[in-house]
Simulated scan of single mutants.
Amino acid sequence: MFQQTIKNFTINFNNLSERKTVSSGDLITGHISFDVTKEIKINSITMRLKGAADVHWSSGGGGGRKRRRQRKVYSAKVDFFDLKSVLVQQEGAVGGTTKLQPGTHVYPISCLLPQGDFPSTFHGVHGKVLYTLTVGINRPWHMAKDFVTELNFANRFNTNQPELRAPLSGSNNMTLCCLWCASGPITVTASAEKKAFIPGETVKIICEFSNASSRTATPKVSLQQKQVYYDRSKVARRRILKNLASVTGQPVSAHTTDVRTEIMLTIPSSAYLTISNCSMLDVDYLIEVKLSIRAAPDLTVLIPIIMCDTPVNSAPPPYM
């Protein structure tokens, strides 16, 4: 069998970034290796570099034949690039073959990612952005065997923009009513030291609370990921909100003012990068600072942030 003749296929890359990502315009180099258990003939070894995105979801339907007929399906797909090359091919006449002897075979690879504003790799509930490198071993009278490796592609936008380094803040307030009585004001002010972060980084959220009510309030900080999918017409859309991480702070006692605290929230290292340059999906992030009070609506402050591949230093404090 073909699977038993060629074993232990691996692709090894050179000079990847610290986060093992590639980006537009990068030269990918390395080598492939595989073991051959007996002498075989091959026509060629080919390489294919592809980037594409697709989304798919449905609405309506459910149990029963009539409901299934009422189900609507939405989808969209786009190819960013599809590049093909030959690593090994018999010289001379088309259709010639090369003999591979038993043992380990190693071949260098080199390919250039095209220039372009392509979205970062993403796997979501209703769609994905996928970049792959496929090596195909083609043998006479055999079906071609493809070995597919997914590339972690990062859209490296300009992180020197001042707005990415500047602090962000927001505030909100409310009063509680019980019959004819109204509580004193409850206020939340929250700030982050900058707007852009990388996966795995810890965010310091500075919170200021005032609780003039008669009830204890509990603060909670969460990282929310918002996924929005669009069909071909961009008329239909599907929105998904995911909570990626959360931290609960110390309760704020009743009738207290000017409570200041710092809450540290670590972004999961598996978080995907922000996507705003794809026609069929968006991926955004929000830090939600919430003050929960029993038998009352939550008091919430939302801080939008950007997830990028390159570390961004916060702006230095203004000169005093």
Rank of each mutant, 00 (worst) to 15 (best):
V22Y: 07
S210I: 08
S44H: 04
W57I: 02
K226A: 15
L133T: 05
R165V: 10
L302C: 05
Q250L: 10
L299S: 00
I206E: 11
T104E: 09
L133N: 07
F80T: 10
A212C: 15
A196E: 01
Q90P: 12
I109L: 09
S17Y: 02
R237Y: 15
V301H: 01
R67V: 07
T187V: 12
S276N: 13
S17G: 02
V188A: 12
K290R: 15
P102Y: 00
N43T: 13
P199M: 12
K20R: 12
V86C: 04
R232H: 04
R165H: 15
Y230D: 03
C178S: 07
K20I: 01
W141G: 11
R69P: 06
S292D: 05
L291A: 00
E91A: 12
Q89G: 10
K50R: 09
C111P: 00
R69M: 15
H142K: 04
N160P: 10
R19M: 14
V283G: 02
I293F: 05
D231M: 04
S58R: 08
N243L: 05
P102W: 06
K20H: 10
F13I: 01
H105D: 11
V312R: 14
Q4M: 14
R260F: 08
S269K: 11
I28R: 04
D282W: 15
Q3M: 06
A296H: 04
E163I: 05
P102N: 04
T216Y: 05
F2H: 09
Y131K: 05
T10D: 07
Q90H: 05
T149V: 08
D54C: 01
Y272L: 15
N155L: 07
S314D: 10
S246D: 03
N155Q: 07
G63Y: 01
K242G: 00
Q89W: 07
P268G: 01
A245N: 01
G96C: 08
P185E: 14
P317C: 15
E91W: 06
G116D: 01
Q89D: 11
D284L: 13
P140E: 13
A154H: 09
